[in-house]
């Protein structure tokens, strides 16, 4: 299966690879994975507490080209957005931008999960600032 030019571009020149101090209150960390393919993705955001704007984002992903490109793109997109705007990013936007084939859609889902997880972590750390802690989703019993 051929990767699109955009995936290859992100894969060869990933943006914002790296890490931030996960103990800092300004930093939210999302670590997500998919057991089917064994991919793991860590996405971190640094949020300005006054403006709630995401000022920086870093990622590190172990996985296929599409997973790396999806998370690279996700860090580019969240930067400069407020946390609420960033929550609007949908995996389908990533699929469209990167022209991901159906078998690679789960990579974009992982990136969306990572954004949510990072923002959730930041909110949890900043409950004192009047943020609501992320409510964990109960696992459906049925």
């Amino acid at each position: 299966m051929a990767y699109s030019d955009k995936v290859i571009e992100h894969y060869n020149n990933p943006r914002n690879v790296g890490q931030m101090d996960k103990n800092s209150t300004a930093v939210g960390t999302g670590l997500v994975g998919a057991p089917e393919c064994g991919d793991v993705m860590r996405l971190q955001i640094k949020v300005n507490p006054e403006t709630r704007v995401i000022e920086d984002a870093k990622f590190k992903t172990f996985g296929c080209g599409s997973a790396i490109a999806s998370s690279s793109l996700a860090t580019e997109w969240v930067k400069g957005k407020t946390v609420d705007e960033a929550l609007e990013i949908k995996n389908t936007d990533i699929v469209k931008e990167l022209a991901l084939p159906p078998v690679k859609i789960h990579c974009s889902v992982l990136a969306e999960d990572a954004i949510r997880a990072a923002i959730g972590d930041w909110k949890k750390k900043n409950v004192a600032l009047g943020e609501q802690a992320a409510v964990p989703v109960a696992i459906a019993a049925n």
Partner: peptide
Amino acid sequence: SRDASDRAAASGTVKQ
């Protein structure tokens, strides 16, 4: 995994 993602996106919460 996909089902958990869908539930999280639908309810606007962090994925379990």
